[in-house]
Design a protein around this nucleic acid. Structure first.
Lengths: 121, 121
DNA sequence: ACGATAGTTAACGAGTCTGTTAAACAACTG
DNA sequence: CAGTTGTTTAACAGACTCGTTAACTATCGT
């Protein structure tokens, strides 16, 4: 257990920070696959894949079922939606701030030599 | 020198995997800020902040200028757009695959049970 | 029950974060 | 010039990550 509460985004971004895991996620977007099928394109050992899958599962990016001795993996898109929304929201805030700055500069072009960085009241 | 070419997304996702750095990014969406201003909300030392900023800069998420002895930081939204697009694209592929599966099931059986994802009218 | 197939856990090493403190560098100020 | 403010670099410790191999569990097929 970690002392500080682990943000949900921490584990999702960290999971996607690895190229192997992103590749697995991308692969699972095309449909369910077993561990061996997922491992096939990569030059690394099966235990390494197994741990990557555990990381993805822990991040909520995949879920695993049971089919005999196989453990098929499925993509769970919710975290993808969340991080896309976060990135988009942050970008939108940035753009909105630029708009406000632009409007401010437009207004104060006559007199009122205000500082270049307008603080929000 | 790194042996394997480091994917651009690796460094962006890794940069955003840290809550302090995400918080800084979020803060910069509201406008330019100096290192001291960015450090103020956090209980960690200034060198730690400086290194976080270096990581963000290396990921292309911020750029830094010069204003006397200050080094003001600015958000660069391009990487945010890229990862949002990646997540959305992956999610879209997943959804499309479900649509195809649904259509296939519809075609290949007469008495189709109620589909689990009621998306089509 | 046996062996083959599918996957996980254990133990370990190399390398990479993240934080610290102390010291340095850079630019403004008196 | 000296002192102060803003920021970075150096050196180091602790934790985590990613890979390995060896051994283990679980399920299928005969």
């Amino acid at each position: 257990m970690t002392v500080t509460a682990p943000d949900r985004f921490d584990v999702v971004f960290a999971a996607l920070a690895d190229p192997t895991r992103r590749s697995i996620v991308r692969r699972l977007a095309d449909g369910e696959a077993t561990v061996l099928e997922l491992a096939e394109p990569f030059p690394i050992s099966l235990p390494a894949i197994s741990r990557h899958l555990k990381v993805l599962e822990h991040a909520g990016l995949i879920s695993r079922g049971r089919d005999g001795q196989r453990r098929p993996c499925q993509l769970r898109p919710e975290p993808l939606i969340e991080i896309a929304a976060w990135a988009e929201h942050t970008r939108a805030a940035w753009e909105h701030r630029l708009d406000r700055l632009d409007a401010h500069l437009r207004r104060s072009s006559d007199h009122t030599p205000s500082p270049p960085t307008p603080e929000e009241p």
